[in-house]
């Protein structure tokens, strides 16, 4: 459900959770980011930070500067000021990321999990089977056949929740249970209906299908893309995965290692949800690539 009026709930003395709905939906998430943009640009003084998520916005505020009730009233007004979805556009950079499907590193991580924690079906085979795909080649084709929407960031610095924009490329998968104790940096995983990129070596639960040599976060800020922030993505960016051969992967990895890698990003892009809806109406969502 997408709410016609936002619901506000307190998170202690200095946070407010604003709920805009309770379902996994691109339209809902687009509204989250449209409202978030207005809060950033026109929100009242005293709002310290916001965290836009899939269906909600966490607001941090300084109650010495603005009381709870005023945050609610002012943010509600901004919610209504956003207007109908089909008229909205957001700046949306596109990042092109080379990835190697069914790579040896995620396989090694899977083998380690099976040896030490629990037996399970191999991740790519499991994802292909559960989604009715003919083989792994089709999994790579389907997975790389769409732009992904950066729906949210968080949990760990730079970690992204990615939604496929082309409904013909939707994939779903259960998470590891119990979770992994480690995952290679740069692993591409699928959990629920979201895709994610592991910014660093961390525990994890998404099904692993590929790896990218391109860093999406860099605490040392070695590469040019991290001059202003340690994390690559902002909410509302898009990601396109480019299948890479072993040689191409090594080529990029060597550039990253040397500190010369330039992230491939189109900065001029905007995203029109009206155009998106018109395009959706023209396609048969049931076919696969």
């Amino acid at each position: 459900m997408i709410f016609s009026e936002p619901v506000f709930r307190p998170g202690g003395d200095r946070f407010i959770e604003m709920e805009l709905g309770d379902e996994m939906s691109f339209d809902l998430n687009f509204r989250v980011h449209s409202v978030s943009r207005l809060i950033r640009e026109e929100g009242p003084a005293g709002i310290v930070e916001i965290v836009p998520e899939l269906t909600s916005i966490m607001i941090s505020y300084d109650f010495e500067r603005i009381p709870y009730a005023d945050v609610v009233a002012e943010v509600t007004a901004l919610f209504h000021a956003v207007g109908p979805l089909d008229g909205l556009e957001l700046d949306s950079r596109i990042f092109y990321l080379p990835i190697r499907y069914f790579d040896p590193w995620t396989r090694e991580c899977y083998d380690d999990y099976c040896a030490k924690i629990a037996q399970k079906e191999r991740d790519p085979e499991l994802v292909a089977r559960l989604n009715g795909l003919a083989d792994l080649a089709q999994l790579a084709r389907v997975h790389s056949g769409t732009d992904y929407w950066v729906a949210a960031l968080g949990f760990y610095p730079g970690l992204v929740s990615l939604m496929p924009l082309d409904p013909r490329c939707r994939l779903t998968a259960p998470k590891y249970d119990p979770p992994r104790t480690w995952t290679y940096k740069g692993t591409i995983g699928i959990g629920g209906s979201l895709c994610s990129i592991y910014p660093d070596r961390t525990p994890g639960g998404y099904q692993m299908i590929a790896r990218t040599p391109v860093p999406i976060w860099d605490p040392q800020q070695r590469l040019a893309a991290f001059a202003e922030s340690l994390a690559l993505f902002r909410p509302g960016d898009r990601v396109r995965f480019i299948p890479a051969s072993a040689e191409e992967y090594e080529h990029v990895a060597a550039q990253v290692e040397a500190g010369t890698y330039l992230h491939n990003v189109a900065e001029y892009q905007r995203f029109s949800i009206g155009n998106y809806h018109r395009w959706l109406a023209t396609i048969d969502e049931t076919v696969r690539f």
């Binding site: 998170g11 202690g12 200095r14 946070f15 959770e17 309770d22 379902e23 996994m24 965290v51 998520e53 899939l54 269906t55 909600s56 916005i57 966490m58 949210a152 968080g154 949990f155 929740s161 629920g192 209906s193």
Partner: peptide, 18 residues
Amino acid sequence: EHGEDPSNILDHGYPVGA
């Protein structure tokens, strides 16, 4: 999409002190 366990919810922001 909220997940199987009663304590699961679609990913959302966590207040500090949650």
